[in-house]
Amino acid sequence: MLISRHIHQTASDRIWSWAFLLPVVAVLMIAAFIPLGYGLVLSFFRYKLTIATSRPAFIGLQNYFNMFRDEIFIKSLTNNVVFALLSVSIELGIGVMVAMMLSDDNRMSRLMTTFLMVPMIIAPVAAGTLWRMMLDRTYGVVNYLLSFVGIPPVSWIGDYRIALYTVVFVDCWQFIPFVALLVLSSIKSIPQSFLDAARVDGASPWKVFTKVMLPITSPVIIIVAMIRFIDAFKIFDVVFVMTQGGPGNATEMLPTYIYRQGIKFLDVGYSSATAILFIIAMSLIAWVFLRLRSLQLRRLG
């Protein structure tokens, strides 16, 4: 529609239009912009509240340099990257497969689609608690069930070599459905004639998958990958209830590390610097994905 939607502009309309935006601007100022600016300022100061008389002292970029000498920070960064890459690739792989398996429009598929929504809408804290209970070494039902196929009890939470993968698993349990649902809705929008044409030409299912389905759904897949990738760097709830970042620092992630530094150890300046660096990195990642998507869209015409 090219016709402008406001033909009869009056002064009162104009004033009200601005007034209608005000509450949103106010809320986002209070809850997002002012804190962000405050955080940016704090990141240039040495400011620890562990000492009651502590006054903020300006130290320039020192907090930022300190990060690269901080082993726990590096550790949580690598953990987080490993976690993000692993969970996103597993979720995408299985999610796309599940979406394809559910793409026919019969009763069973629709029922399954409904059940798929259940894990993704419950509180991540609840999901973490649930799996913490089931993965317990002695009382957990998972080890019990595995004992039937001859697998000895595994310390899913307590073993530093395994804990990170346990967190990956719980994340996958919650969000494979998310990927599957979004990809499914995109598969359903593929024109039937494309698939008919492919069949007439005698294309194998694999060919249909790689030559018809993947290209058409790829913009959606890229966006879903971006959302999950960014979300993977926001992980907090599940780690908090399952492992508390432990054992050792085996499952420490960036959000839990910022939380620990800022809220637990009251190192305001340093944790603010970490947060600022974090948001810069996130913006870069989002930019890369959006660029990728627009390239893909252009290629598809």
């Binding site: 997002a32 804190p35 405050y38 910022i258 947060a275 996130m282």
Partner: peptide, 15 residues
């Protein structure tokens, strides 16, 4: 919508 909530957690806490 995309930016992680954790980045303002510490300043919000103090405010």
């Amino acid at each position: 919508k995309m930016y992680p909530a954790i980045v303002v957690a510490v300043p919000v806490f103090y405010i």
